[in-house]
Design a protein around this nucleic acid. Structure first.
Length: 89
DNA sequence: AAGTAAGAAATTT
DNA sequence: AAATTTCTTACTT
């Protein structure tokens, strides 16, 4: 595990409930604005699929992107978290 | 050297 | 204007 990957994962954990960020956004948070591709690489081999909310990371075009546990689940999780957010507020 | 869960730009439809 | 192709990106293996 490289430092870059760890940074990515830590930033991913900061994404609030019911919200999403893009791959390039994460790249910027780590000081490498053009490393979006490497970000995807780090997330796909995320060792803790649920502990780190990598399902809150989507493409900048608004599309889902991929997910190690299946894009379908990813969609469901985001939907569910939006609901949860509404319920809490 | 090759591959990637991306992106922007150029190209075609 | 939307869909598809092509090249670039930076990082890992």
């Amino acid at each position: 595990m490289t430092e870059f990957e760890e940074k990515i994962l830590r930033e991913t954990c900061k994404i609030p409930l019911g919200e999403v960020r893009t791959y390039s956004w994460l790249a910027q948070q780590c000081g490498r604005p053009r490393a979006h591709r490497a970000v995807a690489n780090a997330l796909k081999k995320n060792p803790w699929p649920l502990a780190v909310p990598c399902h809150r990371v989507i493409r900048s075009s608004g599309e889902l992107g991929g997910y190690s546990l299946g894009r379908r689940l990813k969609r469901e999780l985001i939907k569910l978290e939006k609901k949860a957010k509404d319920m809490i507020k």
